[in-house]
């Protein structure tokens, strides 16, 4: 058998440049490394977790070009030129993201290990909600959005609640904006 080179990172590593949480980053990624390995082992962004090896649990969920995907199934070299968001990029200027706040307050994170992935799925839903014409918050839809993220602690009840509370904030904001623009239209 052929022994892998001890310093596997050096083998034909490819320079990959992408937007990571809003900032450009370049890494030398071995071609057979997945995104989760590059994030955790090269970039020290250990917020993205690995739970199952092969796309069965959702703990490694990150957003690529906005869409939640499994970092353990995504070859790192294929994010060249794309935008990657991880849990570390949620929240702005030291303020936690509304989801991080509601998860913390409502006890939606127990052990917290599935949570980063859960947050990435939920944040995509919130962003999507914000673009809708007449958004409504629906627990069934939230459950479906989180359908690829296994949680073993909570029974999902408080997770769905926390997402719903944050989602309602989005909806209220949208309604306020709509009312303001209505007012403007009336003027």
């Amino acid at each position: 058998m052929t022994a892998p080179s001890p310093n596997h990172a050096a083998r034909a590593a490819t320079l990959v440049t992408f937007q990571l949480n809003g900032e450009p980053v370049t890494v030398a990624a071995p071609p057979h490394w997945t995104l989760v390995e590059v994030l955790r082992y090269q970039l020290n962004l250990t917020g993205t977790k690995q739970g199952c090896d092969k796309g069965d649990c959702g703990a490694c969920t990150v957003r690529v070009d906005g869409a939640p995907v499994l970092a353990c199934m995504t070859l790192a070299v294929l994010v060249q030129g794309r935008s990657v968001e991880t849990v570390e990029g949620l929240g702005v200027g030291g303020e936690p993201h509304p989801l991080q706040r509601t998860f913390a307050e409502l006890g939606a994170a127990q052990c917290g290990f599935c949570t980063p992935g859960m947050l990435m799925s939920a944040s995509a839903y919130l962003d999507d909600l914000a673009t809708r014409d007449a958004p409504t918050v629906d627990a069934v839809e939230i459950s479906a959005v989180l359908g690829g993220n296994l949680c073993r602690c909570t029974g999902y009840t408080k997770i769905v609640q926390a997402v719903a509370v944050a989602a309602r904030e989005v909806v209220e904001r949208a309604q306020t904006l709509a009312e303001m623009s209505n007012d403007e239209a009336m003027l």
Partner: peptide, 12 residues
């Protein structure tokens, strides 16, 4: 964790 074996990746 399981890792991928070494691979050549060609971006067509």
């Amino acid at each position: 964790m399981l890792r991928l074996p070494e691979l050549e990746v060609v971006i067509a």
